[in-house]
Nucleic acid binder design. Structure first.
Length: 292
DNA sequence: AATGAGCGG
């Protein structure tokens, strides 16, 4: 942002407090910001108006999902222990006076990138309310095949036939500064993409969804670290994932483990399918690849 | 019983 020092206020305003645009501040012409929710699903909506760079009045709706952390739940065994007769010091104390309590405090997390969250801009013609609900077009131009509008580069149906993608992603700018990764253009180039870094074809950069093993019948408190712990014995694991209900934060009882080597995945399946874990019998099978 | 999230120029 260019700051015209001649026009900038002489006051103690620091640059971060200066108005983003250099034009006059017409914000008073805009309707006030509206905050709705969160509703019972934890969805919060903020509606505000601003002028975009073309000077058009624009309505910006941002929805975020706000979620209550599931309150700590007591395990079955803990519940059972509660019915035990008190002994020791506790037998003489008033209940709760010196005992550890489960906090009832609710912690709210805003997760702007959560599923269901989005920010959309709607151009407002004249009456702002007239354009409510109409979304602007998304602009997608595939770098692999050049088609506009229907897919991203990573999903290009022709990506396997289009090695010229390399022209865009594989060649780092020549004026790369080795130490910082900064270029003349200012874009950061990660070490893996800098000149001299060895690379083998296109598959280097694709996410490894190979050797994916699906694990079902997980107990509800099995987390990713637990899965890793269990499966890493068979060989290097590239990813573990436990499906979680985004609304409740509870495990959905299944997950995926990706192995670097297919043979390891196979051995894990053979050994762990039917394996008793946390009172449940695991099902461990090849995962059907996710449609992408 | 059950097949994942996220990243976009």
């Amino acid at each position: 942002m260019a700051v015209d020092m001649a026009r900038a206020p002489q006051s103690k305003l620091r640059w971060g407090e200066l108005d983003e645009d250099d034009g006059e501040d017409l914000d008073f012409l805009l309707p006030p910001k509206i905050v709705e929710g969160p509703d019972e699903n934890g969805v919060k909506r903020v509606i505000e108006y601003r002028f975009n760079e073309d000077g058009n009045k624009v309505k910006v709706t941002t929805t975020t999902r706000v979620r209550k952390l599931a309150r700590a739940r007591l395990s079955r065994r803990a519940i059972e222990r509660r019915s035990w007769a008190k002994f020791g010091d506790a037998a003489h104390e008033d209940t709760g006076s010196r005992l550890t309590m489960v906090s009832t405090e609710e912690i709210i997390l805003e997760r702007p990138r959560a599923p269901g969250s989005q920010a959309e801009e709607v151009k407002v013609a004249g009456d702002p309310l007239a354009a409510m609900g109409k979304a602007g077009a998304v602009l997608m131009v595939c770098r692999a095949c050049g088609k506009k509008g229907d897919h991203w580069t990573s999903k290009c149906p022709y990506k396997d036939l289009a090695p010229q993608v390399d022209a865009f992603i594989d060649k780092p700018p020549t004026e790369t500064t080795a130490s910082s990764g900064a270029t003349k253009g200012g874009a950061y180039v990660p070490p893996s993409l800098r000149a001299g870094a060895e690379r083998s074809g296109t598959e280097m950069r694709r996410r490894n969804d190979e050797n994916s093993v699906r694990v079902t019948n997980l107990s509800e408190d099995t987390r990713e670290p637990d899965l890793l712990e269990l499966f890493r014995a068979f060989g290097p694991v590239s990813r573990v994932y436990v499906a979680v209900d985004q609304k409740t934060g509870m495990s959905r009882g299944f997950g995926f483990v990706n192995f670097v080597n297919k043979e390891d995945a196979e051995r894990a399946i053979n050994k762990l399918n039917g394996y008793g874990y946390d009172n449940l019998i695991l099902r461990v099978e090849w995962a059907t690849p996710r449609p992408n």
